[in-house]
Protein backbone atom coordinates (compact mmCIF):
# COMPACT_ATOMS: atom_id res chain seq x y z
CA UNK A 1 0.00 0.00 0.00
CA UNK A 2 1.27 3.48 -0.83
CA UNK A 3 1.56 5.83 2.13
CA UNK A 4 -0.43 8.97 1.41
CA UNK A 5 1.78 12.04 1.62
CA UNK A 6 0.55 15.21 3.28
CA UNK A 7 0.22 17.16 0.07
CA UNK A 8 -1.88 14.40 -1.44
CA UNK A 9 -4.12 14.52 1.59
CA UNK A 10 -4.41 18.27 1.08
CA UNK A 11 -5.35 17.67 -2.55
CA UNK A 12 -8.02 15.27 -1.32
CA UNK A 13 -9.41 17.89 0.96
CA UNK A 14 -9.47 20.27 -1.96
CA UNK A 15 -11.64 17.79 -3.79
CA UNK A 16 -13.97 17.51 -0.84
CA UNK A 17 -14.27 21.27 -0.70
CA UNK A 18 -14.89 21.40 -4.43
CA UNK A 19 -17.62 18.84 -4.00
CA UNK A 20 -19.17 20.72 -1.24
CA UNK A 21 -19.31 23.83 -3.38
CA UNK A 22 -20.70 21.98 -6.37
CA UNK A 23 -23.34 20.35 -4.23
CA UNK A 24 -24.51 23.63 -2.68
CA UNK A 25 -23.89 22.48 0.84
CA UNK A 26 -22.71 25.67 2.50
CA UNK A 27 -22.98 24.08 5.91
CA UNK A 28 -20.34 21.49 5.13
CA UNK A 29 -16.80 22.29 6.16
CA UNK A 30 -13.56 20.60 5.33
CA UNK A 31 -11.30 19.11 7.94
CA UNK A 32 -8.69 21.75 7.16
CA UNK A 33 -11.04 24.55 8.20
CA UNK A 34 -12.17 22.90 11.40
CA UNK A 35 -11.11 24.44 14.67
CA UNK A 36 -8.77 22.19 16.58
CA UNK A 37 -10.11 20.95 19.89
CA UNK A 38 -8.16 19.34 22.66
CA UNK A 39 -9.73 15.96 21.85
CA UNK A 40 -8.15 16.19 18.44
CA UNK A 41 -4.45 15.59 18.84
CA UNK A 42 -2.21 16.22 15.86
CA UNK A 43 -2.18 12.83 14.15
CA UNK A 44 1.20 11.20 14.08
CA UNK A 45 0.05 8.99 11.23
CA UNK A 46 -2.12 10.03 8.31
CA UNK A 47 -4.47 7.33 7.12
CA UNK A 48 -3.96 6.28 3.53
CA UNK A 49 -6.45 5.52 0.80
CA UNK A 50 -8.53 7.04 -1.99
CA UNK A 51 -10.37 10.28 -1.26
CA UNK A 52 -13.80 9.84 0.29
CA UNK A 53 -16.56 11.77 -1.54
CA UNK A 54 -18.44 14.08 0.82
CA UNK A 55 -22.18 13.79 1.23
CA UNK A 56 -25.14 15.08 3.16
CA UNK A 57 -28.03 12.66 3.68
CA UNK A 58 -31.17 12.59 5.80
CA UNK A 59 -31.76 9.79 8.29
CA UNK A 60 -35.02 8.00 8.97
CA UNK A 61 -35.61 10.25 12.01
CA UNK A 62 -35.32 13.39 9.86
CA UNK A 63 -31.84 14.41 11.04
CA UNK A 64 -29.30 15.44 8.43
CA UNK A 65 -25.73 14.18 8.50
CA UNK A 66 -22.71 15.46 6.58
CA UNK A 67 -19.59 13.34 6.28
CA UNK A 68 -17.14 16.25 6.27
CA UNK A 69 -18.60 17.60 9.52
CA UNK A 70 -17.94 14.30 11.26
CA UNK A 71 -14.41 14.15 9.87
CA UNK A 72 -13.76 17.73 10.91
CA UNK A 73 -14.74 16.73 14.43
CA UNK A 74 -12.01 14.09 14.31
CA UNK A 75 -14.40 11.19 13.88
CA UNK A 76 -13.67 8.06 11.92
CA UNK A 77 -16.81 7.16 9.99
CA UNK A 78 -18.03 3.66 9.23
CA UNK A 79 -20.48 3.37 6.33
CA UNK A 80 -22.63 0.25 6.07
CA UNK A 81 -24.66 -0.20 2.90
CA UNK A 82 -27.97 -1.53 4.09
CA UNK A 83 -31.17 -3.08 2.76
CA UNK A 84 -33.59 -4.31 5.42
CA UNK A 85 -35.02 -6.93 3.05
CA UNK A 86 -31.75 -8.32 1.67
CA UNK A 87 -31.23 -11.66 3.40
CA UNK A 88 -27.52 -11.01 3.88
CA UNK A 89 -28.12 -7.62 5.54
CA UNK A 90 -30.83 -9.32 7.55
CA UNK A 91 -28.50 -12.11 8.62
CA UNK A 92 -26.21 -9.49 10.15
CA UNK A 93 -29.08 -7.67 11.89
CA UNK A 94 -31.09 -10.63 13.17
CA UNK A 95 -31.35 -12.87 15.03
CA UNK A 96 -27.93 -12.45 16.68
CA UNK A 97 -27.59 -8.74 15.84
CA UNK A 98 -23.97 -9.24 14.78
CA UNK A 99 -23.84 -5.76 13.23
CA UNK A 100 -24.93 -4.22 16.53
CA UNK A 101 -22.34 -6.37 18.32
CA UNK A 102 -19.62 -5.01 16.03
CA UNK A 103 -20.89 -1.47 16.59
CA UNK A 104 -20.68 -1.99 20.36
CA UNK A 105 -16.97 -2.76 20.03
CA UNK A 106 -15.87 0.26 17.97
CA UNK A 107 -13.66 2.94 19.58
CA UNK A 108 -15.36 6.05 20.99
CA UNK A 109 -14.27 8.32 18.14
CA UNK A 110 -16.16 6.25 15.56
CA UNK A 111 -19.46 7.32 13.99
CA UNK A 112 -21.45 4.66 12.14
CA UNK A 113 -24.02 5.29 9.40
CA UNK A 114 -26.11 2.73 7.59
CA UNK A 115 -26.92 3.93 4.06
CA UNK A 116 -29.75 2.59 1.94
CA UNK A 117 -29.10 3.41 -1.74
CA UNK A 118 -32.14 1.53 -3.00
CA UNK A 119 -34.16 3.37 -5.66
CA UNK A 120 -37.82 4.30 -5.16
CA UNK A 121 -39.99 1.20 -5.34
CA UNK A 122 -37.06 -1.21 -5.06
CA UNK A 123 -36.82 -3.93 -2.44
CA UNK A 124 -36.16 -2.52 1.03
CA UNK A 125 -36.22 1.13 -0.10
CA UNK A 126 -38.26 4.04 1.20
CA UNK A 127 -38.63 6.02 4.43
CA UNK A 128 -41.44 3.97 5.95
CA UNK A 129 -39.74 0.59 5.45
CA UNK A 130 -36.46 1.84 6.89
CA UNK A 131 -38.12 3.53 9.86
CA UNK A 132 -39.70 0.17 10.61
CA UNK A 133 -36.34 -1.58 10.15
CA UNK A 134 -34.68 0.64 12.75
CA UNK A 135 -37.23 -0.57 15.29
CA UNK A 136 -37.37 -4.15 14.05
CA UNK A 137 -33.58 -4.64 14.10
CA UNK A 138 -32.95 -2.27 17.08
CA UNK A 139 -30.39 -0.36 15.01
CA UNK A 140 -28.51 1.96 17.37
CA UNK A 141 -27.05 4.26 14.69
CA UNK A 142 -28.59 6.46 11.98
CA UNK A 143 -29.98 4.87 8.81
CA UNK A 144 -29.50 7.36 5.95
CA UNK A 145 -31.61 7.31 2.79
CA UNK A 146 -29.86 7.72 -0.56
CA UNK A 147 -32.76 7.04 -2.88
CA UNK A 148 -31.07 8.69 -5.89
CA UNK A 149 -28.13 6.31 -5.38
CA UNK A 150 -25.67 9.20 -5.85
CA UNK A 151 -23.72 8.46 -2.68
CA UNK A 152 -23.73 4.70 -3.25
CA UNK A 153 -22.45 5.15 -6.79
CA UNK A 154 -19.84 7.67 -5.65
CA UNK A 155 -18.42 5.07 -3.29
CA UNK A 156 -18.85 2.19 -5.72
CA UNK A 157 -21.11 0.43 -3.22
CA UNK A 158 -22.27 -2.78 -4.87
CA UNK A 159 -23.61 -5.00 -2.10
CA UNK A 160 -25.56 -5.01 1.12
CA UNK A 161 -23.74 -5.09 3.38
CA UNK A 162 -20.70 -3.27 1.96
CA UNK A 163 -18.51 -1.61 4.57
CA UNK A 164 -16.37 1.49 4.12
CA UNK A 165 -14.23 3.10 6.80
CA UNK A 166 -13.49 6.80 6.22
CA UNK A 167 -10.67 8.19 8.32
CA UNK A 168 -9.74 11.84 8.83
CA UNK A 169 -8.86 13.89 6.90
CA UNK A 170 -11.19 12.12 4.45
CA UNK A 171 -9.73 8.94 2.98
CA UNK A 172 -11.18 5.51 2.43
CA UNK A 173 -9.06 3.46 4.81
CA UNK A 174 -11.05 0.23 4.38
CA UNK A 175 -13.42 -0.92 1.64
CA UNK A 176 -15.08 -4.33 1.54
CA UNK A 177 -16.80 -7.00 3.58
CA UNK A 178 -17.57 -6.76 7.27
CA UNK A 179 -15.94 -10.15 7.83
CA UNK A 180 -14.86 -13.31 6.05
CA UNK A 181 -18.15 -15.16 6.53
CA UNK A 182 -20.28 -16.38 3.66
CA UNK A 183 -23.02 -18.85 2.80
CA UNK A 184 -22.41 -21.81 5.10
CA UNK A 185 -19.14 -20.34 6.37
CA UNK A 186 -18.62 -18.90 9.85
CA UNK A 187 -16.70 -15.65 10.00
CA UNK A 188 -13.28 -15.78 11.64
CA UNK A 189 -12.00 -12.23 11.00
CA UNK A 190 -13.93 -8.98 11.39
CA UNK A 191 -12.21 -6.72 8.85
CA UNK A 192 -13.94 -3.53 10.03
CA UNK A 193 -12.86 -3.96 13.65
CA UNK A 194 -9.36 -4.88 12.45
CA UNK A 195 -9.19 -1.71 10.33
CA UNK A 196 -10.44 0.46 13.21
CA UNK A 197 -7.88 -1.15 15.52
CA UNK A 198 -5.09 -0.41 13.03
CA UNK A 199 -6.24 3.20 12.67
CA UNK A 200 -6.53 3.68 16.44
CA UNK A 201 -2.98 2.37 16.81
CA UNK A 202 -1.70 4.79 14.17
CA UNK A 203 -0.81 2.00 11.74
CA UNK A 204 -1.55 1.46 8.08
CA UNK A 205 -4.64 -0.71 7.71
CA UNK A 206 -3.23 -4.20 7.11
CA UNK A 207 -6.16 -5.31 4.97
CA UNK A 208 -7.45 -2.17 3.23
CA UNK A 209 -9.69 -3.88 0.68
CA UNK A 210 -11.66 -7.10 0.42
CA UNK A 211 -14.54 -8.36 -1.68
CA UNK A 212 -17.85 -7.76 0.08
CA UNK A 213 -20.48 -10.47 0.04
CA UNK A 214 -24.18 -9.73 -0.14
CA UNK A 215 -27.14 -8.83 -2.31
CA UNK A 216 -26.58 -6.27 -5.03
CA UNK A 217 -27.53 -2.71 -4.07
CA UNK A 218 -31.00 -2.16 -5.53
CA UNK A 219 -30.19 1.04 -7.39
CA UNK A 220 -32.96 2.83 -9.27
CA UNK A 221 -32.83 2.36 -13.03
Amino acid sequence: MRPLRQHLAAAGLGLVVLFTAACSQPSAVSAADAPKTDTQAEPAHVAAGPEAPDFTLRATDGSEYTLSKELAAGKTVVLEWFNPDCPVSKAYHQPERRMNATYSEVPANVVWFAINSGGAGKQGAGLERNQRAVTEYEIPYPVLLDESGAVGRAYGAKTTPHMIVVAPPGVIAYDGAIDDGGPGQQATTNYVLAALTDLAAGRDVATPKTKPFGCSVKYGD
Partner: peptide, 13 residues
Protein backbone atom coordinates in the same frame (compact mmCIF):
# COMPACT_ATOMS: atom_id res chain seq x y z
CA UNK B 1 -35.15 14.08 2.17
CA UNK B 2 -32.96 16.51 0.29
CA UNK B 3 -32.02 15.32 -3.15
CA UNK B 4 -28.65 16.22 -4.53
CA UNK B 5 -28.88 18.24 -7.75
CA UNK B 6 -28.33 16.08 -10.80
CA UNK B 7 -25.14 17.89 -11.74
CA UNK B 8 -23.80 17.15 -8.32
CA UNK B 9 -24.60 13.47 -8.59
CA UNK B 10 -22.82 13.35 -11.91
CA UNK B 11 -19.78 15.09 -10.46
CA UNK B 12 -19.70 12.69 -7.55
CA UNK B 13 -19.96 9.76 -9.91
Amino acid sequence: MRHLPHGCALLIA
